[in-house]
Nucleic acid binder design. Structure first.
Length: 203
DNA sequence: AGCACGATTAACT
DNA sequence: GTTAATCGTGCTC
């Protein structure tokens, strides 16, 4: 398989509201390229974070050094560090100066399985990429990639188009890990996942 | 300058 | 079910 055989998701895909992008990303293929080697997986879980009003979104604090990327153009990577040890991968959505992003929470590995196993300390395959920090570790995604464009395959990270997933194959629910956030943000259904992978994902 | 906490994970009991 | 790990960020003093 070569990169040229695949269609990279264009800016027009990302220039939509975050929940639309989160839903649309299910089934698409996240690709990481290291030393000309592809490491990839199908996106099976994603969450939307949008606007300064969304109290679960980092942009609740406004425009800062940390959130600057979210205020930039869509189709770029917003990568942040949390809990003193974990990286999280998001893609910026919506329009410039409108802070919004989609957290990629889980993928189903396709290419580079040996590299992923190594990065994930040879744990069982079922837990390789079933969490946002796990997939970043698996694909060697860290702060060095914060802000890069996802719109071409000349870089280290992008997302390729794939067959759409039918609505009946998808489940939505409240976002994970935001228990101290007030309503309505705590309960709004901005988490999307592919039903057949649900049992392997966070509760 | 100090503090509380986090879009989590792995290793416990 | 509970908890340590571990540090950047934003808020208060």
């Amino acid at each position: 398989m070569t990169d040229q055989n695949k269609i990279i998701l264009p800016a027009s895909f990302y220039t939509q509201a975050a929940p639309v992008v989160a839903r649309g990303l299910l089934g698409k293929v996240l690709v990481r390229k290291i030393n000309n080697q592809r490491i990839s997986g199908t996106i099976i879980e994603a969450e939307a974070y949008q606007s300064e009003k969304d109290l679960a979104c980092h942009a609740r604090s406004g425009r800062t050094a940390r959130t600057e990327v979210m205020y930039g153009p869509a189709g770029h990577a917003y990568i942040y560090f949390t809990y003193g040890m974990h990286w999280m991968l998001n893609c910026v959505t919506d329009y410039e100066n409108t802070p919004a992003a989609v957290l990629i929470r889980a993928i189903n590995p396709i290419e580079g399985l040996d590299i992923i196993a190594e990065h994930r300390n040879n744990q069982p395959q079922k837990v390789w990429c079933n969490g946002p920090a796990k997939l970043c570790q698996a694909l060697s995604i860290n702060g060095e990639l914060n802000g890069i464009s996802l719109l071409n395959n000349n870089g280290a990270l992008w997302i390729e188009d794939a067959e759409p997933i039918a609505d009946k194959e998808i489940v939505s629910g409240p976002r994970v890990g935001i228990n101290s956030v007030p309503e309505p943000w705590k309960s709004i259904h901005w988490r999307y996942l592919i039903k057949k992978f649900q049992k392997t994902l966070s509760k």
